[in-house]
């Protein structure tokens, strides 16, 4: 990690000086105050300069890439890692062949990796970030498939009048089903059973 020490009449000035030297913005560094500084009496007696140590914060992209590359290597998986920053956080997509192992059953491997990636990266950052992992657009496609399934099954509930229990899903997937049908006037949804066998039920409104 790059570090730089600077002095100034005040802490603020010292930081300004260090930022200029490093050529970076305030949010890219961490500041440690070594000496508060003292203006002294009438600007003469006991005057001490402020001293700060400024270090470049690790960049989130680098931390993410670093962690994932190590994991991919240990998993013996060859994949390109694409990282895009958006307002909600950092979106990572893996590209390559035979990446099923990264997805797992209904994305359980991907969820585990995403959870650990968030922990591993954020423990080294002051400003916490959110990281979302995907494999060649799997999550987007899966979401679309779930929305389509919800609509199809709600139609069946309406025509038969019988409730339908979906297969067990994780909380994120159940949420997608609930959201897809929340504005439906004829059916409603709820979940039943214990994790990991909790299922969404679609039933007719009375």
């Amino acid at each position: 990690m790059k570090e730089f020490e600077a002095t100034g009449r005040t802490v603020e000035e010292a930081v300004e000086m260090a930022l200029k030297q490093l050529g970076v913005a305030r949010e890219e560094v961490e500041v440690q105050v070594l000496e508060e500084g003292n203006r002294g009496f009438l600007g003469l007696l006991g005057r001490r300069e402020a001293r700060v140590r400024v270090s470049l914060s690790p960049r989130p992209e680098e931390l993410i890439r670093n962690f994932l590359e190590k994991v991919l290597e240990a998993l013996k998986v060859k994949a390109a890692i694409e990282i895009r920053k958006r307002e909600e956080g950092y979106f990572v997509d893996f590209h390559g062949r035979d990446l099923g192992i990264l997805i797992g059953h209904h994305g359980d491997h991907l969820d585990a990796l995403q959870y650990l990636c968030n922990l591993a990266v954020n423990r080294r950052l002051k400003n916490k970030i959110k990281i979302f992992l995907d494999v060649q657009g799997y999550r987007r496609r899966r979401e679309q498939a779930l929305v389509n399934l919800a609509r199809r099954l709600s139609h069946r509930v309406k025509t038969t009048g019988r409730r339908i229990a979906l297969e067990p899903m994780n909380p994120q997937e159940r949420r997608i089903i609930h959201m897809a049908l929340k504005d439906d006037r004829d059916v409603f949804t709820f979940s039943e059973g214990e994790e990991p066998n909790r299922k969404v039920i679609i039933a007719l409104r009375k």
Binding site: L75, G104, D111, L113
Partner: peptide, 16 residues
């Protein structure tokens, strides 16, 4: 929760 995520990934690699 963390132990579970670690186990999920190690088991995935093993199954592979």
């Amino acid at each position: 929760r963390i132990a579970r995520a670690i186990r999920t990934l190690v088991k995935a690699a093993a199954a592979h």
